[in-house]
Amino acid sequence: PEDPYCPYPTSLLHIEELCDSIVRSHRDTSQFRLEELQALRWKLFSREELHAYQSKSVDEMWQHCAVRLTEAVQYVVEFAKRIPGFRGLGQNDQITLLKTGSMEVVLVRMSRCFNTENSTVFFDGKFGSTELFKSLGCGDLMVAVFDFAHSVCALRLTEQQMALFSSLVLINPDRPCLEDRGRVHRMRRDLEVCLSHMLRRDNQESLQHKLYQKVSVLQSLCSLHVEKLHWFSQRYPLIVHSVFPPLYKELFT
């Protein structure tokens, strides 16, 4: 039935068009193509290359990772802009949704770059284990991030399912300080209808509950990241201020 308050009808045709549009947006804003990642999955860092990373100072490695993370976030910003209805939101609400949602989507997308057979992630052009990030001094965070990637990979999401899940992670009406919560909620409801429609089509309705369970893990990973950043910026305030990417500082400090 037509919902008078919903900016657009929730007919099946509309839902399928919305699904296709989100899948296209995901594909068009993916930092790495799946085929590329598959082809490179056995390209591991050599012992010497690993040693080079582990010999970096903590501030060098933090800066390096902040740059890489910021690159990934920018792809997520482009993804958000292409989600139907997102640009119709107020500018403050667009910022609010991305302020926390961008890192969460980066973490979801990271599972595409993860090889569960040897627990390695694609970074700087090759695959490396948590050992690669030793000099960050954030062992617990990296283990938690790798564990999360494992758990998402275990769901064996298709690219289409990942696209929908990413949009749901981003369009979160529970974020604090939203000015038009109702509008975000309506957008979210259509995305939920899209996801259940897609999972029903794929005969994988049990996935919906498992996906929603991931959201709380995502939030704890993001808080742990901010906690680590706080720890680091107390030790190296000048580094964060002077050489960290400005977008990273805007989002996370």
Partner: peptide, 17 residues
């Protein structure tokens, strides 16, 4: 909020072409 997130705001303003 826009004041504190100038870069993000600018990225959001850029066209999606």
């Amino acid at each position: 909020l826009k004041e504190k997130h100038k870069i993000l705001h600018r990225l959001l303003q850029n066209s999606t072409s």
